[in-house]
Amino acid sequence: MNDRCENLSAVAAPLADRKLPSLAAALHAATVRDRLVEHLPESELDGGAPGIELLKHTPGKRCVIAYDFATRHGRRRVIGKLYRRERGQAIFANMRKLWQAAQCATPRFHLPRPLAYVAEWGMVLQEAAPGIRADYLLHHGTFAQTVAATARNLAALHRLDLDLESRNTLALHLQKYCHPGLEHLMADLPEARRRLAALAAQLLSDGSLAAMKRCPVHGDLGLTQIFHAEDHVSFIDFDGLCRSHAALDLCNFIIVLKTHLGRASDRMIALFLEQYDRLRPLGEIEGVRQYQALIYLRRAMIAWRHRLDRDWRAQALACLTAAEHALDQRRSFSDRHPAKVSFHLFGERA
């Protein structure tokens, strides 16, 4: 693959991005090769420009690019994540801490090795995750193995002794995940204004989580953040890494399973919780009701952002009902056997 942007294969290459001024350079093969030589000297590049694959571009926020190049030891694939301003610097610092903590942890937590931070571009360089992305395995016969390995890797993450500056509360999660704000949903869904306001007020006034134990959390674990290779999975995309409550990751992933598998998800959820419980007791997990409600509110906002869809209102209202039901629950993981945990789903999108 040459250095012409129009030949990039994964998604259409952008002509420019004002908030990502280094994007053009990051897509130019000859320029990229010089940067790789500078920041990855151990690679021993064996001449030639790297192949470039534009994987994902979120205008004004980030861009993910894969670089394939030859070394004296064979082919190598490196992922570059380009961020606006200096955001990548903090993300890289957290990934380095996470990688270092994972090396001496038992059980082992798996993630791609962070390699370098290209300050002049605002780019994080990391190894490519081995294996197959979990969403491609969803209807494969090995998906149960993927779910079990995901539970073990998540429990390993939550067990890590990792000091992070970012320590997010439920209120901060609500602000982040319901961007640009519930008031926009209220304006376009006036029949649910009072219900949305009451639900948000209930979450924000709930001080029960303030003194509860926190741990490192991924913050946005879905199928596209999981790669399955042989007997383990690796997680990617640690933009939301922080110290918070384990229930955030658990509830988010369980609702992802319910969204994709519907009624067929019960067996996978039971397997997921059973495997997690073996490494980190579910009785320690607090805030299940609150974080279920948060995830459903987030999905209501996703429906609003897709409001050109004809059924967005029905989807948003279904998510709101699910959030209300979640807060009405009086039991948590610690009150019942993992296989009996029930998570309500009312047709929201993944």
Rank of each mutant, 00 (worst) to 15 (best):
R4S: 15
E6F: 10
A13H: 07
P14F: 06
R18D: 13
R18P: 07
K19R: 15
P21Q: 08
P21G: 11
S22N: 10
S22L: 01
A25W: 01
R35T: 14
L40A: 11
E42Y: 03
E42R: 14
E44H: 15
H57F: 11
H57D: 11
C63S: 15
V64R: 10
V64I: 12
F69W: 11
A70Q: 13
T71Q: 11
G74V: 02
V78W: 08
L82G: 08
L82K: 03
G88L: 04
Q89I: 05
I91N: 12
N94C: 05
M95W: 02
R96D: 06
K97G: 14
Q100V: 05
Q100I: 01
Q100C: 04
A102Y: 03
A102N: 08
A105H: 13
R108T: 08
A116L: 01
M123S: 08
M123L: 15
L125P: 10
Q126M: 07
Q126P: 01
G131P: 07
G131Y: 06
H139F: 15
T146C: 15
T150L: 00
L160S: 10
L160N: 10
D161T: 11
L162C: 09
E165Q: 12
R167F: 00
T169S: 15
T169D: 14
L174T: 10
C178I: 04
P180H: 09
L185W: 06
A187T: 11
L196F: 07
L196E: 09
A198F: 03
A200H: 09
S205R: 06
D206T: 05
L209K: 02
A210Q: 03
A211V: 06
R214C: 05
R214S: 04
L223I: 02
I226W: 10
H228Q: 13
D231S: 12
S234P: 05
S234T: 12
F235V: 07
D237G: 03
C242M: 07
R243N: 11
A246D: 01
L250C: 08
C251H: 04
F253Y: 15
L261W: 09
A264L: 02
S265R: 08
D266T: 14
A270W: 04
A270D: 07
L271T: 12
F272R: 07
L279F: 09
R280H: 12
P281G: 13
P281M: 01
R289T: 02
Q290G: 02
L294P: 06
L294W: 07
L297D: 12
R299K: 08
R307V: 00
L308V: 13
R313I: 06
L317D: 04
A318G: 15
L320P: 04
L320Q: 09
L320G: 09
A322L: 02
R330C: 02
P338N: 08
S342K: 13
L345S: 14
L345D: 14
A350V: 11
